[in-house]
């Protein structure tokens, strides 16, 4: 009996152990190292010769909050999150829902089609969208000109460029969220709907009473990860605009990359990444709290 109790106690650790240990070594430990670096002036020479690293306290953080480019990239990042997250979550949800309505083979086929952007090479995306967005020769402006609408500077105006990148990214990232929503939709027991049919519920009622509540987990998951994804927004501005025009599309992750890897200012870059890290934690914690209060 004693042996069994012991067994029951360690079982969960056997399941989570390997994963947690690996995470501790390869994710948690590095972040602690980074935290330490953020209080130093470490650059390339410091990397080669640790004796050249100086502890400089909060200097990096103070400089950051005076750095116009950093502040701008922070504002841009918030803009991306506020517009991008609802757009991405709602559109992938709608696609998943529509796919449930059609016959099985059509659903399979369209699932592949809607997943294609996620597997399309980023360079191909940059070339094609670069053409779509080209101010003078682009397809979008050509279509607009048919309706006598003036050309829009898709990537040439800081504000419009942000929106253009959001559109592109929503288009690209829908695939994965759609899959998660689909998996969740599939796991709603059919008998719920059958019971509702017997009660004579209409389609709207079924959506609101059965589908949406059953999807709470999935929606929560997709929202949390999408928020994190947008806060770490990097690849699209990197390939499409390199943060321009006038830093109008620069994001915090891109700023970190520029400082840390292009200019080898590891201390400064690490400090910026910590601010981003804290913002992400705060955003996630808020969502968990909201969910808790929603459940109660």
């Amino acid at each position: 009996m004693e042996v069994n109790r012991f067994k029951a106690k360690i079982t969960p650790y056997l399941f989570i152990g390997p994963a947690v240990i690996l995470l501790l070594i390869f994710s948690f430990l590095p972040i602690l190292v980074s935290l330490a670096i953020s209080f130093t002036d470490m650059n390339l020479s410091g990397l080669a010769n640790w004796s050249q690293i100086n502890f400089i306290g909060f200097d990096n953080f103070i400089t950051l909050f005076k750095d116009e480019v950093f502040l701008k990239s922070m504002r841009n990042t918030f803009f991306y999150v506020i517009i991008g997250v609802p757009a991405a979550v709602i559109s992938s949800f709608v696609i998943a829902l529509l796919l449930k309505f059609v016959s099985d083979w059509m659903s399979s086929a369209f699932r592949v089609v809607y997943y294609l952007p996620s597997v399309t090479n980023i360079v191909a995306i940059a070339v094609v969208w670069g053409f779509l967005y080209n101010q003078e020769y682009g397809l979008f402006n050509y279509l607009l000109s048919l309706f006598e609408i003036n050309a829009i500077p898709w990537l040439e105006d800081p504000l419009i460029a942000k929106l253009s990148l959001i559109l592109l990214t929503v288009w690209k990232s829908n695939g994965v969220s759609m899959l998660i929503f689909l998996a969740a939709l599939q796991s709603i027991p059919k008998m719920y709907y059958e019971a509702a049919d017997i009660d004579g519920a209409n389609r709207w009622q079924k959506l609101c009473r059965i589908t949406l509540p059953s999807m709470r987990f999935a929606t929560f998951f997709v929202t949390v990860t999408t928020v994190i994804g947008w806060l770490q927004f990097f690849e699209e501005p990197f390939v499409m605009t390199e943060g321009g025009p006038l830093n109008g599309t620069n994001s915090m992750a891109l700023f970190i990359y520029q400082e840390g890897f292009q200019y080898s200012e590891f201390g400064y870059g690490a400090a910026a990444s910590f601010i981003l890290f804290i913002i992400i934690i705060l955003a996630t914690v808020v969502q968990f709290i909201l969910r808790k209060s929603d459940e109660n």
Partner: peptide, 16 residues
């Protein structure tokens, strides 16, 4: 107990 737990973790990692 804590020791056993730890050694199990370490063992898993080592094997891997």
């Amino acid at each position: 107990k804590i020791k056993t737990r730890k050694s199990i973790h370490l063992f898993c990692l080592l094997v891997l």
